[in-house]
């Protein structure tokens, strides 16, 4: 195991910004062995991935003889953001996941993502772990750009997640880590799970199993240990239904996240604490699995409350 600095910058007052990567590799180089990079903390308020990387590093430490390929771990890309509860790059207020591929002559956030892209480049597989944001709780899911699904879908099914969401290509998303790395030939998957600023331990363990399962299938680790890979439901066989708040207020949920619900079922209410009145009652626009649920209760008109995966005849 070796920890290396992939980017550093002397900050104005007595501190160095340092982005680190830890590499696990076999003591003797194996011919044809693959390389996987696990990246997290591109958004500073998303911490679920840090726990997954901790669990993975611990497993690798304890099973060093199983390591056949190269495993690179990048636990805190936006290190300043992670330590200051800031989603974007502090001061610049830039979403690093809209700044790829960056460049060495760009502003500091652009230089940082450029350094990350260069360092990950050459990996066979990359996994970018996100935790939604502070507003929404998500079940463990993989997001895949349709453009790259022919090569990434097979890998996504190994990751022990509950849902695979294949979305259309959107120009603005070309500035993301996953699009950049996929374009450079690294098969890159985006995981969304849990909620911002918090850890969901069971999700961490679930994804750890998935990553180990994928690495075993790809012969990056060789071990007799068995890893679970649950069969995910996929957006190929249904639709995603959105529920946005029709009004501003305090959202009080009625259901648990991840529940299987029927069309018309009550999801929650929007209330006004000032006068004790219910401003709006929210019902499911379709049956299916409630895979996204609002966590942060203050809402404005338009704030996302829930996403449901199902099909029109509710058989899903």
């Amino acid at each position: 195991m070796q920890t290396t600095e992939i980017f550093s910058s002397q900050l104005p007052v007595g501190e160095i910004l340092s982005i680190k990567r830890t590499r696990f590799e076999p003591t003797k180089k194996k011919e044809g062995a693959k390389r996987i990079s696990i990246v997290t903390g591109i958004h500073g308020d998303e911490l679920e991935g840090q726990y997954v990387i901790y669990l993975l590093a611990k497993w690798l430490q304890e099973n060093q003889n199983s390591i056949h390929g190269i495993i690179d771990l990048y636990p805190a890309v936006n290190a300043l953001g992670v330590d200051s509860i800031t989603r974007g790059f502090p001061i610049y207020e830039v979403d690093l996941n809209r700044a790829f591929p960056g460049g060495k002559h760009e502003f500091l956030p652009g230089q940082l993502v450029h350094a990350l892209s260069l360092d990950v480049q050459g990996s066979d597989i990359a996994i970018d772990i996100h935790s939604s944001n502070i507003f929404l709780r998500e079940i463990p899911q993989i997001r895949i750009n349709k453009e790259f699904s022919p090569t990434t879908l097979r890998l996504a099914k190994q990751l022990n997640c509950d849902f695979i969401w294949i979305h259309d290509a959107v120009t603005v998303l070309e500035a993301t880590f996953s699009h950049t790395m996929n374009s450079l030939g690294t098969k890159t998957l985006v995981v969304e799970m849990g909620v911002g600023m918090r850890l969901t331990k069971e999700y961490g363990v679930q994804l750890l199993n998935g990553i180990l399962n994928l690495m075993k299938k790809e012969k990056i680790i060789i071990t007799d240990e068995k890893f679970e890979a649950r069969k995910p439901f996929s957006s190929e066989v249904g639709d995603v239904f959105y529920l946005n708040s029709p009004t501003s207020g305090l959202f009080v949920p009625e259901l648990d996240h991840c529940a299987v619900i029927k069309k018309g079922e009550k999801i929650g209410t929007i209330v006004n604490p000032l006068d004790g009145k219910v401003l709006h009652t929210l019902y499911a626009p379709n049956g299916g699995i409630l895979f996204t649920l609002r966590e942060y209760p203050i809402v404005y008109e338009g704030s996302l409350i829930a996403r449901i995966f199902g099909n029109n005849n509710e058989k899903n």
Partner: peptide, 21 residues
Amino acid sequence: LDKTDINMMFPGYDQGETTQR
């Protein structure tokens, strides 16, 4: 609330998030 940039929401969406609306 969500620190989104209105100038990254055009042409907008009347069924979407607050800044898209």
